[in-house]
């Protein structure tokens, strides 16, 4: 079996890299935590890494560079200025890229999502804005898988099924530019780009707290039109085992954490 190499990319303030690497390791891949400076060559030569040598790129959650500007903006700017060509090539080669939480924010800032008019947009086409509650929200969220097409992320998560992934963010409300809101949403639907939407335990598209941020159309995660770049606010890497589900002591029968199928799908897609 081919070793699947996963680049778990980090800078200062990225703080979900351990569990992100653990997620890939637990489905048989070979993750490596890589600092951006290692890809940019700003390091001793024995630490140098090439993006092209990986099969999967993961941007984990956290507060990259403190998120003191806009969430993800600084990480995205550093990536864009130093690694633009390599990133575009990676995406165009069809290799999977996943960004979770802050990683999603980075992908949007980069223009890799929603990217409806090409691999990477010049300027951000969407924003992950402050939650409607105005607060950081750490709570369980239920996500319905909405994508009809095939792709590297959802082979193990049937269309219409619901998974539990906790959310933990202050800026997760997906928004589109005023005036193009409806049209953008329509195109996302046409392109089959909506992957996850927040629902309540009855499977309904409910408001707060089930949708923790007020995101348009209850969107929790989207992919690019080609389907190989996924960004999502909730954290699948926090539910690798059943015991990190919030209600696991009252729900017997679950074998594994709801986050695992996503990582398994990714790894199997490139194997």
């Amino acid at each position: 079996m081919k070793a699947v190499r996963v680049c778990v990319l980090r800078i200062e303030g990225t703080n979900c890299e351990d569990e992100a690497a653990q997620a890939f390791a637990s489905v048989g891949a070979s993750p490596e935590k890589v600092h951006l400076k290692q890809l940019l060559g700003q390091c001793p030569s024995d630490r140098r890494r090439e993006l092209d040598s990986y099969d999967v790129l993961m941007l984990p959650g956290g507060f990259s560079a403190g998120d003191y500007v806009r969430a993800g903006a600084i990480f995205a700017a550093r990536l864009k200025s130093g690694l633009r060509k390599e990133l575009v090539a990676f995406v165009e080669a069809g290799r999977p890229v996943i960004g979770v939480c802050n990683g999603f924010q980075v992908l949007v800032e980069l223009g890799l999502l929603p990217a409806m008019d090409g691999t990477m947009a010049e300027a951000p086409e969407a924003a992950l804005y402050t939650n409607d509650s105005g607060r950081f929200e750490c709570r369980p969220t239920l996500l319905r898988q909405e994508r009809r097409g095939k792709g590297p992320f959802t082979a193990g998560i049937p269309h219409g099924s619901v998974v539990m992934c906790p959310s933990a963010h202050a800026e997760g409300k997906l928004m589109f530019p005023r005036g193009t809101r409806r049209r953008t949403l329509e195109r996302l639907l046409e392109n089959d780009q909506i992957v996850f939407r927040y629902v309540n335990p009855d499977g309904e598209y409910a408001g707060y707290p089930w949708c923790p941020n007020g995101s348009i159309y209850n969107i929790a995660g989207i992919c690019n039109p080609a389907g190989n770049v996924l960004g999502m606010m909730p954290h699948p890497e926090r539910v690798l085992r059943r015991e990190t589900h919030p209600d696991w002591t009252r729900t017997p029968g679950r074998e594994e954490g709801d986050g695992l199928p996503l990582f398994r799908s990714i790894v199997e897609s490139v194997r």
């Binding site: 979900c16 351990d18 569990e19 653990q22 950081f136 929200e137 750490c138 906790p166 933990a168 926090r238």
Partner: peptide
């Protein structure tokens, strides 16, 4: 406690 990230590191079993 909803404002505190009590699940980062992915190991919080009883929240």
């Amino acid at each position: 406690f909803r404002m505190y990230d009590h699940e980062v590191r992915g190991g919080t079993v009883i929240k």
